[in-house]
Simulated assay, not measured.
Amino acid sequence: MDATAAPERDPADLVVLLDEDGEPTGTAPRLDVHTSDTPLHLAFSCHVTDGAGRLLLTRRALSKRAWPGVWTNAFCGHPRPGEDPVAAVHRYAEHELGLVLGDLEPLLPDFRYRAVDPGGVVEHEVCPVWLGRTTTPPRLNPDEAVEWTWVTPRELRTTVAVAPWALSPWLVLQLDQLPADVSLLDRAGALP
């Protein structure tokens, strides 16, 4: 296949567009929605922990349109129209990281953010945040992520405190919005 050829489009690969109240208003092709004027749309973000209480960080592929090469939480994605949110998280876990996750726990069901990357691409999402667990190492899809590492809660706290610019803005905002008594960092090893 010609490496410069445009990727083949999946007609079902749509995102759900939202109004300011978070209500669906239509759909758009996922490959076209992220621009300098990205409309509000539905997404999700997932943190993954292992049996040792560590958190998975991944480095976004260098070919990503927004925040290429930036370290972030395990993975993010977009539910398709009518898709169960939990099914969407499991679908992306397998596609991006080759992971089968245990039970998912909602952490920030109402998380919402807007951020602009250095190239001018806007993320504008209602983005519920989940926590999942795995017992296997990731097998990266190179179109999605180029590196991964497990970090302790203390290491992530330190990184956010001293170098938030090295992480995705949604990861930094999520950690800031978790209430002290429901801290992702303190619960990383708490799932059964």
Rank of each mutant, 00 (worst) to 15 (best):
D13C: 10
H90P: 03
D84L: 14
N73R: 09
D19C: 11
Y92M: 13
E155H: 06
W130H: 00
W170S: 13
L184G: 07
V126P: 01
E23L: 15
L171M: 11
W71Q: 02
L104R: 12
R157H: 12
R80P: 00
W130T: 01
P85N: 10
D103A: 14
S45P: 03
E23F: 06
E96Y: 05
R60Y: 08
P106S: 11
D176P: 01
V122N: 08
T134S: 13
G69S: 04
C127N: 15
V151P: 04
L156Q: 12
T58D: 12
A115P: 01
A87T: 14
L167I: 06
V162A: 04
L171E: 07
F111A: 03
E83G: 05
P81R: 10
P153T: 12
T152C: 12
R114I: 08
V182N: 15
T72Q: 13
L108Q: 01
L178A: 09
W165E: 13
N141H: 12
L56R: 02
L175S: 00
N141M: 09
V182P: 05
T152L: 09
S183N: 15
L62W: 10
A145T: 08
V129G: 02
L175P: 02
P109V: 00
D84N: 15
T72Y: 02
P118I: 05
G69Q: 03
V162R: 14
L40F: 12
P142G: 08
T159C: 13
Y92H: 13
L17A: 09
D37M: 06
H124W: 10
D176W: 04
D143K: 05
V182L: 12
L140K: 10
A87N: 01
L62F: 12
A145H: 13
